[in-house]
Design a protein around this nucleic acid. Structure first.
Lengths: 217, 217
DNA sequence: ACAGTAACTTACTATTTGGTAGATTGGAAA
DNA sequence: TTTCCAATCTACCAAATAGTAAGTTACTGT
């Protein structure tokens, strides 16, 4: 899981990186309260004092790991280009990306859950909100405007709320797959989730289509 | 939070109940790894050996708390009666109930997240799956059948998948409200979530309406 | 009244955990 | 080559933690 290179002796930056990766993995799999600094040290291939020297204490390390998980998804989001697509295809693309990210970077959903269990005490302390906010919101705004201009989407849909809708449909079946499998006997695997993403795209588009009675606040 | 009555001396059943309630609260707020048996004992107003005597060890206590959180939602679900409603109203009712339950029983979403962080190792060990499975699935199946028969819903929709869709739309904004508030600056409160439930109902109904190209596997 | 036992507590242990003091080592600059 | 500091480690501590042994207390049936 934590793909450590050979220690590359005396490289402070690389060491910090290894610690951060190990911390992200540990916090994501064990939660905040279940994470162990000793395990992080071992997984990173360093001694404990390195961690305290570079990151301060467990809380600061957690903060760094939480921020890192956001930074990763935002990087991915910035790489999406939907300008050349039809509004419908653009929406489908965003849904597909979101689902794929949740599937392929499982620590992201885990960190979100862990942080919300703590009522967001740490996410509030992250200084640079810019590193954390999603570039997808404004992109989604443009897509919606284009769709409305072309008469394919209804007006009055808030981009942030739409983003939350998309995230909802992708997040839940990924994050809760273990309990869903047992409780409902659903064979959730990557193929099942891919089909789910297609359904989610259809559902969102259906919701966006201009129709007499579909209005919202 | 843990509304303890007066200890009612020497009442084993009541004591077990207090321990279970305290455990549910502790595991839900602190996670599996962060939960402390000493805190549970204090919140329940008992000494630690009581817990070990009645529940075995921390793991078994966690299992009891997890099961309890399912039992609670299933009880609520069983009380819903949609037989006299139109298919549309019935769907809206289920969505409203689901959202309301997630809002009013926050430990349920927390326990689901905690258990999924652990890859569902404990939920697998719950013997009586019947206590855990949702009666809403079959109810949803009947509603769908009725809707199809009346020509108001398209055929071929799987009740379990629809249930997951409804749960997705309600779960995410409730479970992740703390990070959403900070990261997207969304004023998520009970009123916001109620509006969200209405949107979710609309979206689901729009997805169910019979239309030329909306078919699914 | 008086056993007998279920309910409950005090006081303890072994281990784990976050965190630190102080020594050591490698590499770059002089 | 020597100096010096950043990078790193060994060895440790105090507190917290899951779990238990052994005792005490209140109810119940006789």
């Amino acid at each position: 899981m934590s793909g450590n290179q050979k220690p590359a002796r005396r490289d402070a930056a690389a060491t910090q990186r290894r610690i951060l990766d190990a911390a992200l993995s540990e916090f994501a799999t064990q939660g905040h309260g279940g994470a162990r600094v000793d395990r992080i040290a071992e997984a990173a291939g360093v001694s404990k004092p390195m961690i305290y020297s570079y990151f301060g204490d467990k809380e600061e390390l957690y903060k760094a790991a939480l921020k890192e998980s956001y930074v990763q998804i935002r990087q991915g989001e910035r790489a999406i280009d939907t300008d050349h697509m039809s509004p419908e295809d653009a929406i489908r693309e965003l849904v597909t990306f979101t689902m794929h990210h949740f599937i392929s970077k499982p620590w992201f959903t885990s960190m979100l859950n862990t942080e919300n269990l703590r009522k967001g005490v740490t996410v509030q302390e992250i200084d640079d909100l810019n590193d954390i906010q999603s570039p997808l919101i404004s992109q989604l705004g443009e897509i919606l405007d284009r769709g409305v201009a072309e008469g394919r989407f209804r007006p009055g849909v808030d981009p942030t709320e739409l983003y939350i809708t998309i995230a909802s449909l992708c997040f839940f079946p990924v994050s809760n797959k273990y309990t869903l499998r047992v409780v409902f006997n659903v064979p959730i695997d990557d193929a099942w989730l891919k089909r789910r993403a297609e359904d989610a795209g259809r559902m969102v588009l259906c919701f966006l289509r201009p129709e007499p009675d579909a209005g919202s606040g």
